[in-house]
Design a protein around this nucleic acid. Structure first.
Lengths: 346, 346
DNA sequence: TTGAAAGCGCTAACAT
DNA sequence: ATGTTAGCGCTTTCAA
């Protein structure tokens, strides 16, 4: 617990108050507090004591004004209610707090204009930003990166440091899993076209299809939300495939509900694989086979990269960190219908 | 899209630049931009034009330094990964953005010390704070409320404006529902003892039990997390009750998993009611009967109250807003075991 | 209606 | 090692 508001002093103490109390100059006090070591050990102790007694708390605004650094980092997500970001936010929060930074959360609501505007207008209010799902064009992103230090998650653009969650690689594993189960006609349930990872996931499907010599098709695009699952499920049924990989778990969970509603059995009639392994993927019905992503880790890594960047060290800083995903098989995937247990499929 | 960084000017434009460009004094420019109406309409237009051309963006730090207002609001949650807060955060975000405020998200990790420290140390970095789940003592909360404008959610303490989600009332409805289903021995699965709403929920159960003249008991406390559901489920089984109301959905969902694991049928063997209706409550297995809370609304209301407070109007400001909840019946509740369909129970 | 001038609290040269 | 002195960009009296 903090001491109850500094004994009698209503106006918060300033550097000048501490200086007056110790008989030193404000500059000395400033140094002692933010640059210990450049000041006599003894006087520093006197200063620290006085500061504590006066319940002195540096004014972040004033400090930011002169130093140009706010010790705040913005984290931009495209939709705060998407559970995928909870993990990111948790990860960034942990790491930022450990480094003494404040987290400013911004919801860009899937809008590139809002994202751009926020970054531009608030760029002097934070020392850097983490873009958890940028919807910006490469051009704007590059321009912005010149204005404010940036780290993007799941978005690779030349000149912008990033953390990449390797879901495409996971998708190849998932395809192998589905093929081994006898599926030969698989669909990709596409997310928004402005989503960068969406393309990579589709390309991974095509690549895997070639390797296994099977059919894949692309359905959508669909909003990366639960409600869009209904339309996606209907599209799957209409397409007549036996399995699909959905852009993300949110969509997959929405599909599950629709299939249930329509009396379609999962995985009996159709198998579903999601992406991310968000909250809920383990307890939905049936539990979802998905590509588990190290989400919190991604947030932590992004912050580390950003802070390293801020602390000058531009040398030897990795520009892209790649994080692996793995296939987590649950109950939403099973043998292809009318395909008895396979024995020695070429 | 923003204009690409102000034509050639590397250093961001300041008020002085706009003043120079228009041949006016900085004070006039300042007024024109933040206090239009106190300046000649024509000169104001000239100023606004110049400001736009120079791509002038006010420096929030400098502004905060003189005005003492940061136009930032802190939102403190006890655990960012708890889906209950997603809704709160979404609600606050919407409302804050609409009012031109920035949201600072702080995760207090269920720690009163962290909560206290953050509020105290950062109190000059924001104009007010919303406590989504304060773990502070009444004493500290009151002390802090004197330092910085506060609005608490689900926490009533004299002198601190608050938004109250009336889950206790919902619990009485839930009890009615369970009683009508033939349950006569019901347990409350308690949340953390430091949680303020936890007590109110238990009291509501006792009250309802008296009304219906049945037994209730209290189990726990348990952490308000999914993992704690296993222990809670076991406790329920050991207690031998036929139904329970859990502190929150997270716990209830965790219990569902454990019951499944132990081969206990829900609602055949035991009925479960959750609280909040968080993300996942509708698609878990079985879908959870729960008390639907207007979570986003709570966030929005909290912000409105806070901003009203900030804008001076201390007169006639409601100190507590109460938001109703309602019972959403899904599949996790059913008739009490060995109790045939009731006919005309008093 | 507009301008001049004095800070807000702090940092960072530059001096001592 | 410490003190002096300018500001940072803006708001805000107080005068004109």
């Amino acid at each position: 617990m903090q001491p109850l508001a500094g004994a009698g002093s209503e106006r918060p103490a300033t550097l000048a108050d501490v200086a007056a109390a110790t008989g030193l100059a404000t500059s000395t006090v400033s140094r002692a507090l933010s640059n210990p070591g450049r000041v006599n050990a003894l006087t520093r102790e006197r200063i620290e004591l006085a500061a504590r007694e006066l319940n002195y708390i540096p004014n972040a605004q004033a400090r930011a004004l002169t130093s140009g650094r706010t010790r705040a980092i913005a984290v931009l997500v495209s939709d705060v209610t998407n559970p995928f970001y909870f993990g990111i936010i948790r990860g960034t929060q942990q790491q930022l707090k450990a480094a003494g930074y404040t987290q400013i959360l911004v919801d860009t609501e899937e809008s590139d204009e809002l994202e751009d505007g926020m970054l531009h207008k608030l760029r002097r209010s934070f020392d850097g930003a983490i873009l958890a799902a940028s919807r910006l064009t490469d051009r704007r992103l590059t321009a912005l990166a010149a204005e404010v230090p940036l780290v993007a998650i799941n978005r690779q653009t030349r000149g912008v440091p990033s953390v990449f969650i390797d879901t495409p690689n996971g998708i190849e594993q998932a395809m192998g899993h589905l093929v081994s189960l006898g599926h030969t006609d698989i669909a990709y349930v596409s997310g928004p076209e402005t989503s960068w990872p969406n393309e990579g996931r589709w390309r991974a499907m095509v690549k895997a299809a070639q390797r296994y010599d099977i059919e894949v098709r692309r359905l959508g695009p669909f909003a990366p939300r639960q409600y869009a699952g209904a339309a996606a499920a209907d599209a799957i049924l209409h397409a007549g495939v036996t399995a699909c990989v959905a852009f993300n778990d949110l969509l997959a969970i929405g599909m599950l509900a629709r299939f249930r509603e329509r009396g379609v059995d999962v995985p009996g009639d159709v198998s579903i694989v999601g992406c991310d392994d968000i909250f809920g993927a383990d307890f939905c019905n049936p539990p979802l086979t998905t590509l588990t992503a190290p989400i919190e880790q991604a947030g932590r890594t992004a912050v580390s990269m950003l802070l390293t960047h801020l602390d000058g060290a531009r040398v030897g800083v990795r520009q892209t960190a790649t994080l692996p995903t793995h296939l987590t098989v649950r109950d939403s995937t099973g043998p292809a219908p009318s395909s008895p247990p396979q024995k020695g499929r070429a």
